[in-house]
Simulated assay, not measured.
Amino acid sequence: MKYPITAACQCGQVSYTLAKKPIKVLACHCQECQKLSSSPFSITAVVTKEDIHFQGEMKHWSRLAESGNQNHAKLCPTCGTRIYHYNPEQPDLIKLKLKPVGASVDKDFAPMIHVWSSEKPAWYQIPTGVEALAKQ
């Protein structure tokens, strides 16, 4: 995949340009991510703040995670698409929730690790050779 790449929310009001491939990509099987994605897991691409540029207005939302930390998120106020998560303790890292155009088959966005596999549906099998953690 050639960089920079772009992505947008469902309505197109929020978009981003990513300059480099993600540091890591993970699949989270926790029940909150299952709700978020309406699927067995949610994909998160971790990138540095300096490698991404956002356009458009975003709304802030947060919830208390099982760890006791606040889980902060930015989303499109029009269509509700989750754009990214962040931890105020690590301000230089962005946890993207959007799939860039053309990334469905690209290895740059294939999960390197599956977390919260203890909450995955029994029918889903994590691919052989991919690391899996019971929690985070």
Rank of each mutant, 00 (worst) to 15 (best):
T6D: 03
A7Q: 00
A8N: 08
A8H: 11
C9A: 02
Q10V: 04
Q10F: 10
G12T: 09
Q13R: 14
Q13F: 08
V14K: 04
S15K: 10
T17N: 08
K21G: 13
K21F: 04
P22A: 03
V25G: 01
V25P: 02
L26Q: 10
A27N: 04
C28R: 04
H29E: 03
C30S: 05
C33M: 08
K35R: 15
S37A: 15
P40T: 11
F41A: 00
I43E: 02
I43M: 12
T48R: 15
K49A: 15
K49V: 06
K49F: 07
D51M: 04
I52E: 09
I52H: 09
H53S: 15
H53A: 15
Q55C: 09
M58E: 00
H60R: 09
W61T: 09
A65I: 05
A65T: 01
A65L: 06
H72L: 01
K74V: 05
L75G: 10
C76A: 06
C76N: 04
T78F: 11
C79S: 07
G80D: 08
R82M: 13
R82C: 08
R82P: 07
Y84W: 08
H85R: 09
Y86H: 11
E89T: 14
Q90N: 14
D92M: 10
D92L: 07
L93P: 03
I94G: 01
L98E: 04
K99T: 13
V101L: 08
V101A: 14
G102W: 07
D106L: 00
K107E: 13
K107F: 12
K107S: 13
D108S: 06
F109R: 02
K120D: 04
Q125Y: 12
G129A: 06
V130K: 09
E131L: 12
E131D: 12
A132L: 05
A134N: 10
K135E: 14
K135G: 05
Q136E: 13
